[in-house]
Amino acid sequence: MKPYPTRPGRLVAKAILALAGFLAVFPLLWTALNALKNNVDIITRVPKVIFTPTLANISYILGRDSVLTGLYNSVVACGSAVLIGVVLGLPAAYAVARYPNRFAGDIQFFVLSLRFLPPVAVAIPLMVIWLQVGLYDTLPALIVTYSLLTISVIIWLAIPAFQGVPKEIEEAAFVDGYGAYAVFWRIALPVAARSLIGAIAFSFVLVWNEFLIALMLSSSNAKTLPIVASELSQQGMNVPWGILNASVVLLSLPPLLFLGVLSGFLNSVFRQKKS
């Protein structure tokens, strides 16, 4: 495609894009910057770009028991739920992708429809149920609840990933005498691995960011990091802002670690569509 000659319209378009790119990251960068500021440098009518950085906010955050407990709970709850999602979701997705049956469409719709359920509608009854069985405010309750999310999301995203594995490779393995399970383990899983990792990372980000269910299913012991962070802000406006900003940064870091994996996943999804 030959580019059109440069016109003012293109310049405006480029300016809009640059502005959007700036808006995408600047608020976050500003928050990170505020996390390094003393309170006097944050509460200024004119935003301060030059200031003496301090690590006090970050060390305060990392030294608080509530934050560390929240971090531990988040890691254990999300990690376990993702693990359960992988163990149960990947085989199911493979079966749907490779063994077409008349229920395949219904299964896919059922898995998707779980996403239609309003979180409140799930959280209220679950709270009552967990209270009755004595598991309210415990990590197992949270893990089981999150598993519903991770299993369904992993199935949904892994089906196209398995469909992307060239059928010929699997057929060849069958001819070589591999059984159906061996083909799944030794062929389909490794070949689809890259896309699968994207799907798994996505499910992790989803539960790491989850707020409403964690809020309703925990009162003190099982609070996850988002809950702890949101509580820091409710101590009124007297709370040092730097500390709040530091907790936001801590909360946001794990999902951002997956930026590369997820954008690669996005690319591979669309490359598949194109071919």
Binding site: A24, A229, L251, S252, P255
Partner: peptide, 11 residues
């Protein structure tokens, strides 16, 4: 452009 959506809603 992918960065904002990765952030927890709380953040």
């Amino acid at each position: 452009f992918i960065i904002p959506v990765l952030l927890p809603r709380v953040s």
